[in-house]
């Protein structure tokens, strides 16, 4: 790598276009959002204006976000995301583990099979789930054959959790696969030779040694779950609102942009918090990393 001063012309030619783009269409828009989050709707002639704003009036929007109603929704978003993340881990771990111990010729195909759904449009996958779970859907049809149902399976928290697991599971498999693949298998042999059962070996050798992958996967899944909008919107309906839906409502139906902006920033801070946690874990586990 060379110092930029050695070739400033090339440095600026390469650096300016992407930096200007990022500044204009990302940093400045976020700045607008930030300012908006501290603003209020203007009052014109004693009436709340639809498009006018009083800028930088204070923290009212943030204070309002801590109203029990919104606090409840935020709390619900956190536990729904946490539950979905836990279920992702429970299903993804055996998958990643299985792929690592599969025959070499099968590995690329199995990995492709795991990742492929991820590339199919989120909306289409969610739509596919609706067709399965709706009251006249495939699952109720099958249950009908054995004399059960029909059940109302959509528009509740269960549907949202299932949808999130379904959609984000591949995100969990990849980091897990990467760490399990690098795991020195002779540790497992040693543990088994020394009389450890398969279960003990798994809990006391495999899991601790693959912790970096688990932490990465958990955070990679938790972040998009927390910020999800489409899944709770289509599968949860009005009964399972998450923070993303409340934000959308402020910008569309409710037309309260300052409040929506404040909620967006709270969501972003939560995201950064999760990323910081991941960073801390990566520092701590550097010593043990295999």
């Amino acid at each position: 790598m060379e110092n930029w001063k050695q070739n400033p012309r090339v440095f600026w030619t390469l650096g300016i276009p992407p930096s200007v783009w990022l500044l204009a269409f990302f940093i400045i828009p976020l700045g607008f959002l930030f300012v908006m989050s501290f603003s209020d709707k203007a009052i014109v002639d004693g009436q709340v204006s639809i498009t006018g704003y009083d800028y930088l009036t204070g923290f009212t929007n943030y204070i309002r976000a801590f109203d029990p109603l919104y606090l409840g929704i935020m709390w619900k978003s956190v536990w729904i995301s946490a539950l979905a993340t836990a279920l992702c881990l429970l299903t993804a771990y055996p998958i990643a583990f299985g792929i690592c111990f599969a025959k070499d010729k099968w590995k690329p195909l199995l990995l492709l099979l795991v990742v492929l759904p991820f590339w199919i449009n989120l909306l289409i996958r969610t739509y596919a789930l609706i067709a399965v779970f709706r009251t006249q859907g495939y699952l109720n049809k099958i249950l009908g054959w054995v004399g059960l149902g029909p059940y109302e399976m959509l528009y509740n928290n269960f549907a949202v959790v299932f949808g999130l697991v379904y959609v984000y599971m591949p995100f969990m498999v990849l980091p897990l696969y990467a760490t399990i693949e690098r795991l020195d298998k002779s540790y497992l042999e040693a543990s088994l030779d020394l009389g450890g059962s398969q279960f003990q070996t798994f809990m006391r050798v495999t899991v601790p040694l693959t912790m970096p992958g688990i932490v990465s996967g958990v955070i990679l899944v938790f972040i998009p779950c927390l910020g999800s909008f489409l899944t709770p919107d289509l599968l949860g309906g009005a009964n399972a609102l998450m923070i993303g839906n409340v934000i959308e409502r402020q910008f569309k139906a409710a037309n309260d942009w300052p409040f929506g902006a404040a909620l967006s920033f709270l969501l972003m801070y939560a995201t950064f918090g999760a990323l910081a946690l991941r960073y801390l874990f990566s520092l701590r586990s550097k010593g043990v990393d295999v």
Binding site: L22, L30, F32, I223, I247, W257, A261, S264, T271
Partner: peptide
């Protein structure tokens, strides 16, 4: 880190920020 921001921040935040802008 700045260059990675559009990858990590929630899509909905980026969507509303751009709408506002």
């Amino acid at each position: 880190g700045f260059m990675a921001l559009p990858i990590v921040i929630p899509e909905i935040c980026m969507g509303v920020a751009l709408l506002l802008f």
